[in-house]
Simulated assay, not measured.
Amino acid sequence: MERLAFSSSSQWYREGQQASFVRARKSSGGVLDLVEVARPAGDMSRPALPDIVLVEDMLGCRRVRGDLGGGRFDLTTRKGTLAVAAPNFATTVINDESHQLRSLAFPVAQWRSVLDEAADGRFPLDNFCIYGRVFNSPTVRSLLRNLWALGHEEGVPSRLLARAAGCEILAELCRLGGTPFTSAKGGLAPWAERRCLELLQARLSEDISLDALAAEARLSPFHFARMFKQSIGVPPRVYLTRLRVEKACDLLERTDLPVTQIALEVGYSSNQVLARVFTRHMRVTPSDYRRAVRDPVRSIPSQWPADLAPATAAPR
């Protein structure tokens, strides 16, 4: 094992001995680090890292031996098997065959206060009983899959998406580990709801963080995310995406701005990112949408669902 100090999982996968095995990497401002690796059989141990790392086995392996911080194991894994490696622990992992993994790292420096607030100061960071366990959780797998898909859609996960998704995943891991987070009581106060919706609208083009919204409501990020959903009906990241798509529609209808400029105006890094998000929600590209609202009789795509067609469209 290398005798180097690595400040994060992200740095380890960039510079460590397994860097050549990385197939995809998405990092969101140090809030979360997502990595996909395809590794050969053999010793895949790593030095201690200051992150809680959730790992999903994408293929399964006939035999895996090692220690992730919860005691030694020797077992067979299946596709979708999950495990959590403890922070500040030099893990040992030896595989009998090549395999593919996806990992999600929570830098402790970013998440310590969230964990303390969500668990009323009772989160056992050093001896969390889920460390080193191999387990199955459809909920965690679904959350991971959605996070990867949304990260691909946006290029990298926004800070709002990363923090909100991280809170959901950690909440489920803590439930499975016997340390459930305290539940939020009710939704946002009317003044807090109004202020947060105004802030989202005003900072649509920015990579606004969940922490900033939570601070406006005078809540922890974890409790804010749950209370926002209770009040609005959807998580903050979903609401923000809806606002951005609605604003993009408005600019496509009313202006001649290039699609690239519209993407920047609504908070996306490129026209390709806007196209992916817009098409998923509207089932039509931004350019086709603009043509349709400018000349609805001639330009409405035949595949456009009736419930999404612009109100200006004439009967066909």
Rank of each mutant, 00 (worst) to 15 (best):
F6S: 02
S9F: 12
S10G: 09
W12H: 12
Q18D: 09
V22A: 05
R25C: 02
M44V: 14
V55R: 01
V55F: 00
E56H: 01
M58D: 10
G66T: 11
G70L: 11
T76C: 10
T77M: 07
T77N: 06
R78P: 00
A85M: 11
P87V: 06
T92N: 01
L101F: 14
R102A: 10
W111G: 06
R122C: 05
G132F: 10
R133W: 03
V134G: 01
V140W: 08
V140D: 06
R141F: 03
R145M: 07
N146C: 05
L150W: 11
G151Y: 09
L160D: 01
A162N: 08
A171F: 02
L173W: 07
L173P: 05
L173D: 06
R175M: 12
T179Q: 11
G186Q: 09
A189W: 03
W191A: 12
E193G: 03
E198R: 13
L199S: 11
A202H: 12
R203H: 14
D211F: 00
A214T: 07
E216Y: 05
S220Y: 05
R237W: 11
V238I: 15
V238K: 10
T241S: 11
E253R: 15
D256N: 15
D256L: 10
P258G: 03
V259G: 01
A275V: 04
T279Y: 06
V284L: 13
T285P: 09
D288Q: 15
V297K: 14
R298D: 11
W304Q: 15
W304K: 02
P305L: 11
P305Q: 11
A306N: 13
A309W: 07
P315Q: 12
